[in-house]
Simulated scan of single mutants.
Amino acid sequence: MTTHGPVLPTWSCGGCDLPWPCPTRRRELRAEYADAPVSLALYLGGYLVQAAEDMPWAPAGALHRRFIGWTRQPLAVQQRSTATVPAEPGRNGRHQAG
Rank of each mutant, 00 (worst) to 15 (best):
W11D: 11
T24S: 01
L18E: 07
T71G: 12
T10A: 15
C22P: 03
F67M: 15
A58W: 01
P37K: 07
A51C: 08
A76T: 08
E28D: 11
A97F: 13
C13P: 14
G69N: 11
T82N: 12
A31G: 09
W57L: 04
T2D: 08
Q73C: 13
G15H: 12
R27A: 08
A51I: 02
G45L: 07
E88S: 03
Q73T: 08
V77Q: 13
R66K: 10
L42Y: 13
A87M: 02
C16A: 02
M55T: 07
I68A: 10
W57M: 12
A51K: 06
L63D: 07
Q79A: 09
T3Y: 03
V77I: 14
Q96E: 10
A52V: 01
H4P: 06
A58G: 01
R30F: 07
G14E: 03
R80V: 04
I68S: 13
R30S: 11
Q73E: 09
E28M: 01
Q73Y: 15
D17R: 01
C16T: 02
F67V: 08
P19W: 09
I68E: 13
Y33Q: 08
A60P: 02
V49F: 04
Q78V: 03
A51D: 06
A52Q: 02
M55C: 11
G45P: 12
L63I: 07
W11A: 14
H4C: 05
C16V: 05
A58N: 00
P21E: 02
V38K: 01
S81H: 08
P59Q: 06
W11R: 10
H64F: 15
R30T: 09
D17Y: 10
T84P: 01
M1R: 04
P21N: 04
G69P: 12
T82G: 15
T2R: 05
R66D: 00
A58C: 02
G69M: 12
P86M: 07
T3V: 09
Q96D: 12
P9Y: 12
A51Y: 02
G90L: 04
C13K: 05
Q78F: 05
R91I: 13
Y33C: 14
G15Q: 05
A62M: 08
M55S: 13
Q79L: 05
I68T: 14
R30Q: 13
R80F: 04
G15E: 13
H95Y: 11
V7E: 10
R80Q: 13
C13V: 09
R25V: 00
P37W: 14
L18V: 04
L63W: 01
G90H: 00
I68W: 03
Y43T: 11
A87N: 01
G69K: 06
A97I: 10
Y33R: 07
L44T: 06
G61M: 10
L8Y: 12
A62N: 02
G61P: 02
Q78Y: 02
S12R: 14
V49D: 03
A97W: 11
C22G: 07
G93S: 04
V38T: 08
